[in-house]
Design a protein around this nucleic acid. Structure first.
Lengths: 346, 346
DNA sequence: CTGAAAGCGCTAACAA
DNA sequence: TTGTTAGCGCTTTCAG
């Protein structure tokens, strides 16, 4: 048997308890626990041992109040269901690993009001930095962010004005480029399938860029179809059936995301439709799930992981410019024609 | 022009600033901001107005230190990539909505060491409660949790001993039940496809339950195949091809999750294999994505959302028993034969 | 290298 | 209904 381990879980242990237990001043214990170098190896050893034996967990609340430093990075995203965001979070998590900073996530469900609440709640913990999806926020949110004096990185999108820094892609450009690729391949009767969410600004911008490029070529979207909640893959099937029944002459379907695109692809293959001969298809995001489809859906990589990493690095003060504020990082999405856009056999 | 809005973002505003600005004591300002009822409507009004005008955001760090109360609930999960966890988080988020509690997420990547670190970090913020996936933790983690005196809910799994409360399903039983359904349908040469992750204890328990039920029927797993990282859907395809090449006489494939199961299903359909006649298939989780497949993969619902909700309610003190500690909630997964297990046409 | 004093911004408890 | 007085548990600063 060695020394008695932990005791009553009633009152959490304090520095003072450790101090008493090992006959070293609170201050020195604090130094050891913060890994400061100005402590003799002997005392360090002793303090560490008793702290561990006691099961002491420091109180960061008190620490943060005293030091005015908080190792938390607030991350605010619209949804976790979307697959896109978990990957961004993965990038953030990885980049923050080893910096001593800890990400803390909040979810808004694409609701501006919820964003405001979550933000308020989070800011009241005085985080080291804030990473949030999108450039569109309520006035109150912007005001809070600006007054906070905290570094803010807005991610995913660069089409708009940032409060502080931004890291993302141009969805408008992404839409345009996809449109051009489709036109280049010779498709002309183009349908669009998307979500009903008016607050998904990035989807909206892709659509705008897309139609803009069609206009430039003297074309219009031939037909559109929208969906609300439910299994995106299933919705993709259903919408595809609907739009093709209504407009059988369509020769291309542009989906606002890969999930519905994949559903549409599966439906087309089930129906024996010649893809990409008779009908071309494309989605957006470069989701991993496309790798397992019977044929590869054309898509555009949204650089999700890298966005997370870059944003985190900026917050951690490890950005390229060395500086923390005002960065603007535009990433370039990679177009992938897959097997669902026919190749120009020039 | 109205009154000047906010000023220097240098130093965050304090209660005192608000107090000064509206000639009401700090204490009363504090009362108003915490929505306490013992303040006259007049002063309340005044305080609220100036606080908003100034853009004051309370400092929860100081508040928490003084009141010894923190409105944070720590949620620790292995991964965000898995699809399963985001849904649990959704349930937690919903159930906590309106309670004043805020979920804070940490990710372990299925690494015990990371779990320990994340937990330590989180506990040092003295959260109101802890929700964590699984029943398997390092000794150090268990010790921290026990000493913390904080309510802990372990989720997803009930096959084991909880530190405090638990909410989940029996994966062992889920495995057994699936095995019985498969045997009932007349399949006998059964293959298993799973992950390489030794730390995915729930997958392991399902496998154990599964083989146990086979043994009870005098059978053994005929062949198995495992995979590491990468697109699960694609891996499902590849593993299915591999295992069927190696063991062409298999008449059933049990996948440890729906994603690889869906990949396998797509591959089988591509190959023109008669499912469920020649070959039966089943997965696990009841993922939404299955709704969009050409035919429905047999699966078992893991009650993810409800698990999150129940766990959150326990932490919020809204559990069924009214009490906070020691709850044990076992949910019953629903078996869905889908279209990939043949029905007994008794 | 170690310790003592002061105070971070807020709220509990009490007094008025 | 409002104000005053003490801390919460730690870290900063400065002295030894």
């Amino acid at each position: 048997m060695s020394s008695t381990p932990t005791q009553s879980p009633r009152r959490p242990l304090t520095l003072r308890d450790v101090s008493d237990a090992c006959g070293v001043s609170e201050m020195t214990v604090s130094r050891v626990l913060r890994n400061r170098s100005d402590v003799s190896p002997a005392t360090r050893e002793k303090v560490l041992a008793t702290a561990k034996a006691l099961g002491y967990v420091p109180n960061k609340i008190a620490g943060a109040l005293a030091s005015q430093r908080v190792n938390l990075v607030t991350v605010i995203i619209p949804s976790l269901a979307n697959m896109v965001f978990p990957e961004v979070l993965g990038g953030i998590s990885d980049a923050l690993d080893g910096t001593g900073l800890q990400p803390v996530f909040g979810v808004t469900d694409y609701l501006a009001e919820r964003e405001e609440n979550v933000l308020y709640e989070m800011l009241s913990w005085r985080p080291t930095g804030v990473i949030m999806a999108g450039l569109e926020h309520s006035d109150a949110s912007r005001a809070m962010l600006e007054n906070s004096g905290i570094p803010v990185v807005e991610i995913m999108d660069v089409d708009g004005e940032a409060i502080d820094s931004m890291v993302g892609i141009s969805h408008r450009r992404a839409g345009r480029e996809m449109a051009r690729a489709i036109l280049d391949a010779g498709y002309r009767k183009i349908g669009f399938l998307g979500t009903k969410m008016p607050d998904d600004h990035r989807a909206r911008k892709r659509f705008e860029g897309f139609t803009e490029a069609l206009h430039a070529a003297g074309l219009e979207i031939t037909d559109t179809e929208h969906y609300g909640g439910g299994s995106a893959l299933l919705k993709g099937r259903q919408m595809t059936e609907t739009i093709l029944k209504r407009s059988p002459d369509l020769d291309f379907l542009y989906y606002s995301n890969d999930m519905i695109g994949a559903g549409g692809l599966l439906w087309c293959l089930d129906q024996g439709i010649d893809v990409p001969g008779t009908l071309g298809l494309a989605g957006f995001n470069g989701l991993e799930i496309l790798d397992g489809m019977p044929i590869r859906l054309a898509t555009m990589d949204a650089c999700r992981r890298e966005i997370g990493e870059r944003a985190a690095r900026i917050v951690a003060g490890m950005g390229d410019e060395g500086e923390i504020g005002g960065a603007r990082v535009e990433l370039t999405p990679r177009l992938d024609l897959g097997d669902t856009i026919r190749r120009n056999t020039g």
